[in-house]
Design a protein around this nucleic acid. Structure first.
Lengths: 152, 152
DNA sequence: CTATTGCGTACCAATCCGGTCCCAATTCAC
DNA sequence: GTGAATTGGGACCGGATTGGTACGCAATAG
């Protein structure tokens, strides 16, 4: 299974690209060609990022986009959430009501904890770290201990 | 965004249900009614779990399913992987080749680390813990520190 | 032999997703 | 003031994925 949608993946690429050059005011078209992503899609992503307040947009001729904060202050989790919506493991993590099993399902309360752990993994990484050519070393401790076994 | 597919979510419910009564040989139909999930779907899930070796199936009349291992020795990650396939954050985590950006995309190497952290969060929880009415407390350290901010 | 139960596969309907396009609003240059 | 460039916010569409079902085959108990 793939967790991130293509769009969210692209969103991180675009945001990281902006982070590489924080002072520059880049147009959607320029970013698209530089990242080799489809123009219309990049434009859509930037709108979403702007809506979430992660980038600031300047309209009009000679307009463009720029990171709203320092690259170190924007986490991957925020970028993903800006595009795919808030992160939750299960249906009931987000739509709390529409599950007939809520009353007797024993697993429900535990998802919240798993939820936080996953969110933490994404929140722990900022854009400038994504930019660095070196792998970062401050992932949650459990990260190195267990690897998920493939099933097929 | 919702990370787990409905099917994977159901899979965990079914597996947890089996974990509640490890010695019992339960038919797919019985599990379906007890968990209030559609029969055909539960049957499909149990096949997948059996295929992954998480449950053992006994065919024939008076047959049924049973956990293949102790509930404490089966992680949520395994159940999810059995149904949704192996866990990866991005396209390139799984299909390494088919991305034209591999050569110059700076974010690529970092996803692996995030990947492991997420996998660890799911691997850290076993079925018997999902069963307990109390929230477990041994999530990765970062879990409690950061919460993902909603975007919409 | 027959009833029960799992096994495998094929199939269908619905939803979701990636992607495109269009037009209004805003700003700059001349 | 006019026109070009650029973002903003929709609508829209085709295709892939997913949830769910159905059917025939194999195995086993009685």
């Amino acid at each position: 299974m793939i967790i991130l949608s293509k769009l969210a993946d692209y969103g991180v690429i675009v945001a990281t690209h902006l982070a590489a050059d924080p002072d520059r005011l880049a147009t959607a078209a320029a970013i698209a060609t530089e990242t080799r992503l489809p123009q219309a899609t990049v434009a859509k992503l930037l709108k979403a990022l702007a809506h979430a307040g992660l980038v600031t947009a300047t309209r009009g001729a000679a307009g463009g986009y720029r990171l709203a904060r320092q690259a170190g202050a924007i986490s991957v989790a925020e970028v993903v959430a800006a595009i795919d919506g808030d992160i939750g493991m299960t249906q009931c993590s987000i739509h709390v009501d529409d599950c007939i099993r809520t009353t007797f399902c024993p697993t429900r309360p535990h998802w919240a904890a798993i939820n936080r752990a996953v969110g933490a993994a994404l929140s722990a990484v900022s854009l400038d770290e994504m930019l660095s050519p070196f792998a970062f070393a401050h992932m949650p401790v459990a990260a190195a201990q267990i690897s998920v076994e493939p099933a097929r």
